[in-house]
Amino acid sequence: MSKPLLEVSDLQVEFNSRQGRVTAVRGLTYTINEGQSMALVGESGSGKSVSALAILGLLPKKTAKITAGSIKFRGEELIGAPEKSMRKLRGGSIAMIFQDPLSSLNPVLTISEQIVEQIKAHEKIEGKKAQERAIELLDMVGIPSARERVKQYPHQLSGGMRQRAMIAMALSARPSLLLADEPTTALDVTIQAQILELLTNIQKDLGMSLLLITHDLGVVAGFTEKLTVMYAGKAVEQGATAEVLGNPNHPYTLGLLRSIPRLDRPRTSELRPIQGVAPDMSKVSVGCAFQPRCEYAQSKCASESPLFSTISKDRYAACWYPQDHALQDESLSK
């Protein structure tokens, strides 16, 4: 067994703004081992981005507060770690890429300037050499004529190329963990697949760990070893990706799988979207947060919150009445 690299346990994050208090993350636990990849899936507003920013200590200082839990990287606690050591980690051992490459690249700096400054932040290196390294990195992520592209500004690149450039930048200091926050959401479907493939290839080639955040269960199949499903700020289900997709324990995961339109299913087979809406994150919930939308809910679900606990070997779920039916027609787990 490889060693755990990132251990997040019972993370809770709260926002205090003029609009009121929002508990965005309400209990998130997972471990990513060295060289492992995990997908973090949940619908919009479930706290995925907030939990990723918490790892790097990049939550807005004035409004956000980590109220409980721990984040350990190589066994060292990151919550409350001094700014100086956090800065070393950021873009060094832990790199991050974002949803929209156009808005996460600086419009007035060239690709070269943006990659070089990151390289220089993490090692003593001559400008010329850093420049050469930037070109190599762009080459590696499949940007054609990298030597010319490196001198360009973000707006001169296509969406897919920008995301490749972001990835190149993230890889510049050879991180052991890459946090990818919905890296393909802003891209065309064909390019989405290319970028995901690039990410997983790089992850395997460099032996890097990967946290892939997405709201699309369809994306994770076949791309990550492990899967954590989040609902309303909480981890509700976790396990090996193939197993979770083939045999979901939590009714929410089951609902998500049933609501994905699929080309390989007969058109007559009905889509079953989850009824109801996600809860308001500014309210405190009693009982299971998914209970109002759950078709398997019983009276206990409304009053007591289920713990995130072992269901079977290496399978976790937060549910009083975990389901157990293998999905036949859903061949998401290839």
Partner: peptide, 16 residues
């Protein structure tokens, strides 16, 4: 804006 968070995520100094 998002590119400021992204810039901080690169580990460069606050001044920069």
């Amino acid at each position: 804006s998002e590119f400021i968070i992204a810039a901080k995520a690169k580990g460069i100094s606050n001044r920069r």
